[in-house]
Amino acid sequence: MQDTTGAQTHEDGNALAGPLSAVFAHDMTTAVGRCLSCAAERPLAEVSVWSHGPGLVARCPGCDAVLLRLVRTPRGSWLDMTGLSRVLLPV
């Protein structure tokens, strides 16, 4: 995208619609996450999930740090992934 001078500008978030729909359609249990706390990497299928509380809490099996939290409420689903420094979605 360019402005009238030919310089590149940014687009709004709607530009993420197509690319992110492909990402979040992925089976996330095969995604490989890196723990922000200890840097260990493993598929999400191998993390420890605590599901008896008010929401789902996924923890690193190595250091017990919280990797991901998911709460479903009447307003929608709340997802926090700040405990993952990156996620690889394998082809």
Binding site: W50, H52, G53, V57, R59, D64, V66
Partner: peptide, 8 residues
């Protein structure tokens, strides 16, 4: 007395 924990 149910136990509901978010971690170990």
């Amino acid at each position: 007395f149910p136990v509901l924990s978010a971690g170990p």
